[in-house]
């Protein structure tokens, strides 16, 4: 057993494409030479309901088949999900990647995040998705933007491998999705100050 297994927990809502994002990320990691598994928890499957997806990566094909309780990475596709749920079990000095504009500190428990000594990264995936006209009605599809951010911060998947997987798994707006990945990769930034924003 090798000890380099990394665990991701993705939080979003039904319709945001987090399950497919998890499988694209896992495939890209695999194409880049590591093993990866992506899986999800469904309650009743419906748009807007909270959905959790998981990814495990590592150099050993053998991995446990249990849920992830102490993730190395928490990826927040929708920051209106309860902060307690998001932070539960996050490893000390773990990483949080949040889809948010600068007002995220009003919604998420900043004090808890500081206590967890987590590294926090934000990307305004909603804005980027609109820019690339990735939306179903009024519902922006942020998943491919978040993939770009995850690739940049974790260093586990290359953009090229993400593009290969997207071409295989996404049926529409492939160019827009690829550009969204690139923008997510470019625009994700670390948050160094947790002071509330008043803009």
């Amino acid at each position: 057993m090798k000890e380099d297994m990394l665990e991701f927990r993705l939080h979003g809502r039904g319709g945001q494409g987090i399950v497919i994002a998890a499988s694209i990320f896992a495939e890209a990691v695999f194409l880049d030479g590591h093993y990866a598994r992506a899986f999800s928890l469904f309650g009743a499957e419906r748009r807007g309901a909270p959905v959790t997806a998981f990814i495990r990566t590592g150099s050993d094909r053998l991995m446990p088949r249990s849920r992830i309780y102490e993730p190395d990475y928490v990826v927040v596709f929708d920051s209106t999900i309860s902060g307690d749920t998001l932070l539960a079990g996050l490893k000390r000095e773990g990483t949080i990647i949040i889809n948010a504009d600068s007002s995220w500190t009003k919604r998420l428990p900043v004090g808890e995040i500081e206590k967890a000594t987590a590294k926090v990264f934000i990307v305004d995936a909603r804005e980027i998705a609109w820019k690339h006209k990735l939306a179903i009605g009024s519902f922006p599809m942020v998943n491919t933007v978040m993939l770009g951010a995850m690739a940049r911060i974790s260093g586990l998947a290359s953009l090229d491998s993400l593009f290969v997987s997207i071409k295989k798994r996404v049926s529409a707006s492939i160019d827009a999705n690829i550009n969204a990945v690139k923008d997510g990769f470019q625009c994700v930034k670390e948050v160094n100050s947790f002071a509330p924003s008043y803009d």
Binding site: F39, F42, R65
Partner: peptide
């Protein structure tokens, strides 16, 4: 095989 643990798990 088990639902979700296997049916919904993407792997190589």
């Amino acid at each position: 095989f088990d639902g979700f643990y296997i049916s919904h798990t993407y792997e190589a």
